[in-house]
Structure formats: structure tokens, C-alpha cells
Simulated scan of single mutants.
Amino acid sequence: MRLTLVALILAAALPVAATSYQPPRATTDGWAVADAARLGWDTATLGSLDDKVADGSFKQITSVLVVDHGRLVYEHYFNDGSADLLNDVRSASKSLTAMLVGAAIQRGAIPDVKAPVYAFFPEIPVDHPDPRRAAITLEDLITMSSILECDDDNQYSAGNEERMYVSERWLDFALNIPIRGYAPWVARPRDSPYGRTFSYCTAGAFLAGAVVERATKMPLARFAHEVLEQPLGITQVTWNTSSEGVGMGGGGTRYRSRDLAKIGSLIADGGRWHGQQVLPKAWVAAMLSPHAQARDDADYGYLWWQFRFPVGGIETKVWAMSGNGGNYVFVLPERGLVAVITSKAYNKSFAHPQSQAIFRDYILKSLSR
């Protein structure tokens, strides 16, 4: 008995072995898998991420996946996450809406990004008509820089998303958002980088999705399945709708982690998946071009974020789908890198910093040189 007790004490005193890296398993979902070590990755650093999630250093993370030039090289699920879980990626859905805008333009349903938004909804009354509304374009919505007074970061904003969610008709709400003004400390478009004043607006992204619905004459979810999900072999997904049944292009879609990685890889490869051109290469390039300055440390494309991270000691621009809770799909096209991080840390202050830390300190630091 005493010997057993001593053995238990000694065992408890020994350091716990770090989790070793294991390559992903091949399935029939279209993913090629590879051993990151054979591709030159620092798998000790990459594998140590498992322990940091397990010991609570990173909280409420449900999955981390890494793709290297079209090959899945890391896949791990945590905290009740699983390969079959449909992750609610919240505002990362906005980037999907940008892809659908491009697909609708390619099919001729929408002439181009300069298409005037209000022309698609002539039957919806506007309480305060203003000739300036007629000049609002689809590009204004997908760059978060329209003249509508809409700011999700300001609880007093007339267009704040929480006000839209409790309205009976979201589309009427979005089209009736007042014209914005500019406080003395806010730069006007002509004085802003890229000539646009950025203001994060979920109602605008929702409105962009509604334009796609009107233009294509099909529900947003069905159009997404036809032009995006089916070509990628994505079979399980959930799209939300507004209270009146309009597809929710502003957030809340649910995808499996491997399917999110497919979407990221599609963008990393210029709109191609397994050699098939799913989205126009020119549209992907336009999405991943800065059109507005979102913050001092981030620019904005067409519903895609552009962050800056150190890669090999050099500040590098990385594109991302980003959503509440710390949900991300990071894309670094020139390195063929895609990283998916899903999380349920909704409305937590640590959510985005910790997901970015995972990407910066574990994925980028272990990246093959």
C-alpha cells in the first residue's frame, strides 16, 4: 500500500509529456492530407497548441485546422467541438456574402459593384426620402462605408444591428436607416484612406445579401449552395433568415470546420478548388484588396479583413473572415496558408485576442520556411 502511494506521489511530480503532433486522417470529403513535419513545419510548436487549449490558456476554442497549399496538415477539436459540428461563425458569414455578390455579377444578375442598392427595392417605402440614397452602391455596403448612419460599435447608432434584430421587417429597417453626419473627430470620406469612411454595419451586409436574393431571384441559401457549396462538396450548412424570411448575409451561418477550410482554400487559390474555377479570379483579387481603413492596425476589402502579422520577422498582410467569439478563417495566399479557428467565446473580451494569438504564436511561428 505504502509503495503504491509513493509511486502515485512520484508520478504526480513528474512533468506531463507534451502532446505530440499527429497528421490529420484522410476521409472521403475531398481533402488531401499531409504530414506537416515532412513539409518542413515546426511540429513541436504546432503540437504544443493542444496542451495550451487543454490547460485553459486558451478558452472555449472548439477547433483549429491548418492547410498548406491545399493539403490539410493539422486538425484538432476541443471543448465538445467535432468534425461534424456546425460552427456558428457569426460575422465571418459576411465574407461569404461578398463571394455571392461576385458570383451574381459573374452570372450577369448584377451589373457590377457600382449597382445602386435602392433600385432593387422600389416597392419598399422610405420614411425620409433623400436623393443621396439613390447614389448608395453595392460597393458602399460591402466596404462598410455607405452614408447610412450605421455603426454596430455604437449602441446609440440608429442602424445598430441590435435594433434591426427586434424589428418586424429587417429589410425595411435597413433601407430606412438615416443619412449619417460626421462628428469633428471623424474623418470624412475625402480625407480618409482609400476615400472611404469605415463604419462597421451588419445591416449593410444584410442588405447586400438581400440584393443578391433580388437579383438572382432565389433565396440566399439556395444561391450559396448552387454557386459555392456544391462545387466545394459542402453538404451540411445552416443559413439564417430575417424575421420576414430574407437570407441573413450579415452573420450566423453554420459550417463544419473542414468546410470552412475549403472556403479559405478556395480564396487562397484565386477562386479555384481542385482545379475548377468556382469564383472569378478577378473578383477574388478585388475582395482581397484594401478599400477602406477599418482601424489603425487593419484595412478592409470586400467584407474581408486585412490584418498584419509577423512572418519570419517581417510584417505581413493576412486576410481573414472574422466573427464574434473569435471565429476566424485566415488566408495568406502567397504562402498557400489557410487556418481555421472556431470558438464559442461569444461576446467575451478575450475572444479575438486569443484566436489571433493562436494564429500568430503557434501557426505562423511553426510555418515551414
Rank of each mutant, 00 (worst) to 15 (best):
P189N: 11
Y156T: 12
V66F: 06
V318E: 11
T62A: 00
E334S: 06
L85P: 06
P129R: 05
Q106N: 01
Q155F: 15
V338K: 04
D297V: 04
D88G: 06
L72C: 13
P111G: 09
L367N: 13
I136L: 06
L96T: 05
Y21A: 10
Q236D: 14
N240L: 03
R258A: 04
G323I: 05
L279Y: 03
G247T: 00
A345D: 12
L279H: 02
W185V: 10
A268P: 04
Q293W: 14
A119R: 14
Y118D: 12
D296C: 07
I61G: 03
I358V: 15
S242M: 00
F120Y: 15
H274F: 04
R295W: 14
R25A: 14
S48Y: 10
E213P: 03
G30N: 08
A37E: 12
V211E: 02
M287E: 11
Y118R: 12
T137K: 03
G312W: 11
Y77R: 00
A205E: 07
R71W: 07
Y182E: 10
V318L: 12
W170N: 04
A282W: 11
G247C: 00
A208L: 02
K94L: 08
Y194G: 02
T316S: 14
T137S: 12
A17E: 14
L228E: 01
S368A: 15
V6C: 05
D269G: 00
P193E: 09
D269Y: 00
V117G: 03
V212R: 02
V338D: 05
P24K: 10
Q354V: 07
G245Q: 01
A115M: 07
V166F: 09
L279F: 07
V311F: 08
Q277V: 00
D151N: 15
K281C: 01
L5E: 12
Y346F: 15
L148G: 07
K344H: 03
M164P: 06
E139V: 01
N160F: 08
M287Y: 08
E226N: 10
R295T: 15
V246Q: 04
Y255N: 09
T216R: 03
R222K: 02
A339T: 12
A158D: 07
A158W: 00
N324T: 10
R308W: 14
R196L: 05
A13D: 05
A134T: 10
N87Y: 00
Y182R: 10
V227E: 11
S93L: 03
S349Q: 09
M287D: 06
R272S: 04
A18V: 15
K262D: 13
H76W: 02
R25I: 13
A32E: 14
R90A: 11
N160M: 09
P129M: 11
A298V: 02
A339Q: 05
T143K: 04
L72V: 14
A36T: 14
N327W: 10
Y182A: 10
D127E: 13
M248E: 06
Q230R: 14
H76K: 13
S343V: 08
Y182T: 09
Y156G: 11
D296T: 13
G250E: 05
V67C: 11
Y77Q: 01
M99S: 08
K281R: 15
V311A: 05
